[in-house]
């Protein structure tokens, strides 16, 4: 996907510049942007190191494990038909908490494991095949609705480009995320009501 988008942007840019006679601007644009990426990363390095350092403490202190357990009622509500003790539950919980805390590196592996476990669950139910189960749909819609509470990356980008209050978006972002997630939950519950 990205191969296509990336190539498309560059080819389109150069062709359009050739048509409008802005080739020298494109030369500068390409070189400046590459340099800018480096200075952006320096700002990001600070924010990311701070965040990941804190999260490492949270992990060592057992806070993350505690959070993962704490969302069991939520899992029971969203995924009532996954049997208790099924490993899909554990992976889903890990994925959700990693999402909430913005631990991108931990989301995807747990998410993929969760999908595999859900596929096995379908087999156990005697419905193997290439059709998504209700649980898979719910899990993915939740993931796409974004669960992240503190948008660490956005804060870093904002501070790099001179925002007066980079962290000022936290509360409105939480509010917007809540709305999109609630919409996702309601939609999934309605759809899940009609069993497959």
């Amino acid at each position: 996907m990205l191969n296509f988008i990336w190539a498309f942007m560059i080819l389109l840019g150069v062709i359009y510049a050739a048509c409008t006679g802005r080739m020298s601007e494109v030369t500068n644009g390409a070189l400046d942007s590459a340099g800018e990426a480096i200075s952006l990363c320096i700002t990001m390095a600070g924010v990311m190191a701070l965040w990941m350092g804190l999260m490492e403490i949270a992990k060592e202190a057992g806070l993350i494990e505690k959070l993962t357990k704490a969302i069991t009622p939520f899992l029971n509500f969203m995924f009532p038909r996954i049997p208790k003790g099924h490993k899909a539950r554990e992976y889903i919980a890990t994925n959700i908490i990693a999402n909430v805390l913005g631990l991108g590196w931990a989301c995807t592996p747990a998410g993929l494991k969760a999908m595999e476990a859900l596929a096995e669950l379908e087999k156990e139910r005697g419905k193997p095949g290439q059709i998504a189960s209700n649980e898979m749909c719910t899990f993915l819609i939740l993931n796409i609705s974004s669960l992240q509470l503190i948008p660490v990356n956005m804060i870093a980008y904002r501070s790099q480009y001179g925002s007066a209050n980079p962290a000022g978006i936290i509360a409105p972002a939480i509010f917007a995320t809540l709305c999109s997630t609630i919409a996702a939950i309601v939609y999934c519950k309605i759809k899940d009501g009609g069993h497959r």
Partner: peptide, 27 residues
């Protein structure tokens, strides 16, 4: 955390470059 940033650095360079080209072209 620093390692994460180093890992995404090439991605950022590539993408900011592509957007930079598009922006400069007037597109």
């Amino acid at each position: 955390g620093l390692r994460v940033v180093v890992d995404i650095l090439p991605t950022l360079i590539g993408l900011m470059m592509a957007v930079g080209v598009l922006r400069a072209s007037g597109f």
